[in-house]
Amino acid sequence: MDDRGRESGHLMLILPERVFYAGLLGRPRERRPGAFHVYVAIKGGLWLTLGERREAYRDIVVMPPNQRHTIASDYRSAICLVIEPESVRAGAFEELAERLSGAEGESLACRIRQAYHELRQRHSGDEMSSAEFDLMCFGEALPARALDPRVVRSIAQIGKFCGEPVTAASCAAEAGLSPSRFLHLFKQETGIPFRSFRAWKRARHLLHFVNADINLAHLAQDIGYPDSTHFSHSIRRFYGLKPRAIFSGSRDLAIYRSGRPANTAFS
C-alpha cells in the first residue's frame, strides 16, 4: 500500500469489471448504483434501508443493480465490492447472493475481510484478473457472461471516455444495425438499457480520480457530462453523495488499478 492509505487503511482496487473498496461510507443517503454491490462490515454491523423499511442488522448486505437503498455502518468505514452485471452469467450473482445471505454468509464475510488485509499489503504494480478477484473474495470465479462481439465493441467504445460521447446511433452504425435493433440487442445481451449502462459507466469512471487534486468542473467535462449540474445530480443518484463530498472523503485513499482482460486465466 502507498503512503496515502497506509495509516488510514483506506484503499480501492479498480478492475474493468470489479471494484474492491474499503473506506468511508459517508453520510447515509439513498443511492442507486448500476452494478451488483456486496457490503461487508469491517467492525460492528450494517443497517440497510429500502424505502421506509429498515432491514435486519447484519454484517453483510447484498444488493442487485439499480436498487434504491441506504447503507449505514456502526463503524465509519466498511468494505464494498462492485461486480459489473454484464460480466457475469445471468443468474450467477443471484446464486452468489443466496450463499452470502445464507449459511455461508459468515464465512464469506470473513473471507472478504481477509482479502482486505491481503490488499493492504498490495504493491501498485501487481496485476489481477476478475477471476483472481472472485477467487480471493468468494473462493471461486463467477461464471462469465458470453456477449455478442458487437456489444463487446460498443462497451469498449463507452469505456474510452475520450472525444465525443458515445451514442447508440454510432454504436449501431459500427455494428451494422439500425438504432432500434442495436438497442434491443444491447439490452438482451447485458440485461441493461444502453443509456442506463452508459450513465453508470461514466459515474464509475469517476472512481479513478477521487483522491486527486483536480478541478471537478473540468473532470465532469472530460468524462462526458454536459455540465456541472448534470454531473452532480448523476453522481449523487448513483453514490448517494455529491462529487465534492466523495473527493473530500477520499484524500487518504490508496487507489490501485488493474487492466487485465476478464477472461485472463489465473495460475
Rank of each mutant, 00 (worst) to 15 (best):
I60P: 02
I60W: 00
I60V: 14
V61L: 10
V61A: 07
V61E: 00
V61P: 02
V61D: 00
V62I: 08
V62K: 02
V62P: 12
P64N: 08
P64M: 03
P65R: 06
P65I: 01
P65K: 07
N66V: 00
Q67F: 05
Q67D: 07
R68Y: 10
R68Q: 09
R68S: 13
T70N: 04
A72V: 08
A72Q: 09
A72C: 06
A72L: 07
S73G: 11
D74P: 00
Y75H: 14
R76Q: 11
R76K: 14
S77V: 11
S77Y: 09
A78L: 12
A78P: 11
A78R: 04
I79V: 05
I79L: 08
I79C: 04
C80A: 13
L81K: 03
V82K: 05
V82P: 00
V82M: 11
I83C: 00
I83G: 00
I83Y: 13
E84L: 14
P85H: 11
P85Q: 05
P85N: 07
E86C: 02
S87G: 08
S87I: 06
S87M: 06
V88S: 02
R89K: 15
R89I: 00
A90P: 09
A90S: 13
G91V: 10
G91S: 07
G91C: 09
F93G: 12
E94L: 02
E94G: 10
A97R: 09
E98H: 08
E98S: 13
E98Y: 01
E98T: 11
R99G: 01
L100T: 10
S101A: 15
G102T: 07
G102P: 05
A103Q: 04
A103P: 00
E104H: 06
G105V: 04
E106N: 06
E106R: 05
E106Q: 10
L108C: 05
L108R: 12
L108E: 14
A109N: 03
A109P: 02
C110N: 15
C110W: 11
C110H: 14
R111C: 03
I112N: 04
R113G: 02
Q114F: 14
Q114R: 13
H117M: 13
H117K: 07
H117I: 05
E118S: 13
E118R: 08
L119Q: 08
R120F: 03
R120I: 05
R120A: 10
R122P: 12
H123W: 09
H123L: 10
H123V: 08
S124Q: 14
G125V: 14
G125H: 15
D126K: 15
E127A: 15
M128W: 05
M128E: 15
M128H: 06
S129G: 09
A131C: 12
A131P: 01
E132S: 14
E132W: 03
E132A: 15
F133N: 12
L135D: 12
C137I: 10
F138C: 10
F138G: 09
F138K: 10
F138T: 13
E140C: 07
E140V: 03
E140H: 12
A141V: 13
L142W: 07
L142R: 06
L142V: 06
L142S: 09
P143Y: 04
P143H: 07
P143A: 12
P143S: 11
A144P: 02
A144N: 07
R145G: 06
R145I: 03
R145D: 01
R145S: 12
